[in-house]
Amino acid sequence: MATFLFLVQLLFIGTLTTSANAETETCNWLLNTTESNFTVSVTPDVYKANTTYLVTITDNKNLTNNVTKYLLQALSPQNASLGKWHVEESENCSSINTIVLSGTENKANWTSPESNITSVQIRAYIRLKDNSTQLSTVTLRKETGTPTTPNSVSMVQSSSFFIAVIQLPLVLITSKLLS
């Protein structure tokens, strides 16, 4: 009986060790990545606080049959995790929340935080059957620049018209004087 309890304890400890190694294995995938040209699209494509985005990974090289996992991260300009991913499986890789999607899921929803940041980088990783990992990124930025309002356009147009009306008689008078 004591041997049986001892074996059960070893089995339990082995299970814990295996799951801990699986978590670190996922994070290790991120260490040796190569840049890739697969597409990461985010809708909407402008950053706003407290907004839900659809992040979609599209494979440009027909790697779809070789993909085992998709991993996604959302990072501030200071490389800190931001927002909330709406998926069940996630990992904490060096204090960065990394979500894990199966090879058949290539979309996830992410909600931006209630903060005053100017940009967010979405990192997408593809883990392939040959144990290689590829990376592609997209950066969402706040809209900058002041949109032109109809009133300011009208003001510019009317002032240009006013200048043209004054210059026309001056040109006519100058041409009479010179001739």
Rank of each mutant, 00 (worst) to 15 (best):
L170S: 11
S132G: 10
T104I: 14
I99M: 14
M1C: 09
N131Y: 13
N50H: 12
T58A: 00
V67G: 02
S136I: 07
T64Y: 05
T34Q: 06
I166C: 02
S102L: 04
R141F: 11
L178S: 13
Y125T: 02
N109Q: 12
F12A: 08
I163C: 13
D130I: 09
L82D: 06
S154V: 08
E23C: 01
T149E: 05
T133Q: 15
P150A: 05
D59R: 05
L72M: 06
F12S: 13
T111Q: 13
N92P: 07
S41C: 02
Q73R: 06
I57R: 00
F161G: 15
A2M: 10
T149L: 04
N66C: 00
K142W: 10
G83T: 03
T58D: 11
T68Y: 01
T146Y: 11
Y125L: 11
S94T: 12
E91S: 07
A22W: 05
C93K: 05
S132F: 12
K107C: 06
K61C: 04
W85R: 06
A164M: 15
A74T: 00
A20D: 07
E25C: 15
P147V: 01
A124Q: 08
P113E: 11
I122T: 01
T144E: 13
Y47H: 07
V87G: 06
F4T: 09
I163D: 09
S132L: 05
L101Q: 00
T64I: 06
T146C: 08
N62V: 10
K129G: 02
P169Y: 00
D59W: 04
I173V: 15
L101R: 01
L168I: 14
N151D: 14
P150M: 07
Q9N: 13
L172H: 05
T64M: 06
T3H: 12
A164D: 03
T104P: 00
T144C: 00
D59P: 01
N60P: 00
N60C: 03
T98I: 01
L72C: 04
A80V: 14
S158L: 07
L101K: 00
H86D: 05
L10G: 02
T58P: 05
L82G: 09
T51R: 07
L75H: 01
E89Q: 14
V153T: 08
E23G: 03
S158E: 10
N109T: 09
S132W: 11
L172I: 13
